[in-house]
Computed example of a mutant assay.
Amino acid sequence: MKKKILLGMSLCLVIASLGLVYLYSYKAHRDISAEKVDYVVTISGLESEFTANERSAYTKYQNKIIELTATISMIDATSKGIVLGEKVFATFKDSLPKKITSGKTLKIKGRFLGYDELLGEFKIDESSVTN
């Protein structure tokens, strides 16, 4: 009798553990365009914060939703991205919006990924146009 109870409890524990692993692994993805903006920043503001204290700036901005306004320097249709103010590389989730043209001022929001020291660019993904 005790063996049957232990076997039943063990089986329930295994099933519950598998269920938790499944729920953790296949949770819904973030919808960045629907989330609230954490920080409204400028490119020069980002540069000064990263120059002053890179570790603190990463802690503040990493994986947060930021919004910034800048002029489009370059459009890269193959990677669905744009360069803003020659310092921020922003990629879009699905495709580039049709109204994007080089030289135009644009307000975008997206998830801050980090700073690429080699290229001297800040990286943002899942961007969306907010103006």
Score class of each variant (00 low, 15 high):
Asp116Lys: 03
Lys2Leu: 09
Ile5Gln: 14
Thr71Phe: 09
Glu47Ile: 06
Gly8Asn: 15
Val88Leu: 02
His29Lys: 11
Glu47Gln: 12
Thr130His: 03
Val83Lys: 14
Leu96Arg: 06
Thr69Ile: 10
Leu84Gln: 03
Thr51Asp: 13
Ile72Tyr: 02
Leu20Thr: 08
Leu11Asn: 06
Leu18Glu: 12
Asp76His: 09
Glu49Met: 06
Glu35Asp: 09
Leu96Lys: 05
Tyr24Arg: 14
Leu68Gln: 04
Lys27Gln: 11
Lys104Met: 12
Val83Met: 15
Thr69Cys: 08
Ser127Tyr: 08
Lys123Arg: 12
Val41Asn: 01
Leu11Lys: 13
Glu67Ala: 14
Gly8Tyr: 15
Ala57Asp: 03
Ala16Thr: 09
Ile65Leu: 06
Thr78Val: 09
Lys98Gln: 11
Lys27Gly: 07
Gly19Leu: 07
Gly19Glu: 12
Lys123Ala: 08
Leu113Pro: 00
Asp125Ala: 07
Thr105Pro: 08
Ile100Gln: 07
Lys3Leu: 06
Lys2Gly: 02
Asn131Pro: 05
Lys80Ser: 09
Leu119Asp: 04
Val41Phe: 01
Gly114Ser: 10
Ile100Leu: 14
Asp76Val: 05
Lys36Gly: 12
Lys109Phe: 03
Ser56Ile: 13
Leu84Lys: 02
Leu46Ser: 02
Thr105Leu: 13
Leu7Tyr: 13
Ala28Asp: 13
Tyr58Met: 07
Thr59Trp: 08
Ala16Tyr: 15
Gly19Pro: 00
Ile124Asp: 02
Phe92Ser: 04
Leu96Gly: 03
Tyr24Asp: 14
Met74Leu: 07
Glu121Asp: 05
Ser17Asn: 14
Thr51Glu: 15
Ile43Glu: 01
Thr130Asn: 05
Lys2Phe: 04
Glu54Tyr: 15
Glu117Phe: 15
Glu47Lys: 12
Cys12Gly: 03
Ser102Lys: 15
Leu106Met: 13
Ser48Gly: 04
Gly103Ser: 04
Leu68Ser: 03
Val41Gly: 01
Thr130Ser: 09
Ile66Gln: 02
Ile82Lys: 00
Gly103Cys: 04
Lys123Thr: 08
Gly120Ser: 08
Glu35Arg: 06
Glu121Met: 11
Thr91Ala: 06
Tyr39Pro: 01
Gly110Leu: 07
Gly120Tyr: 15
Lys93Ala: 13
Leu46Asp: 03
Ser73Tyr: 05
Ser44Asp: 13
Ala77Met: 11
Lys3Trp: 11
Asn131Leu: 10
Ser102Trp: 14
Val41Trp: 00
Cys12Ile: 15
Ala28Arg: 09
Ile65Phe: 07
Ile72Val: 06
Leu23Gln: 10
Asn63Tyr: 10
Lys36His: 11
Lys99Leu: 08
Thr59Lys: 10
Ile82Pro: 01
Ala90Asp: 09
Tyr39Arg: 00
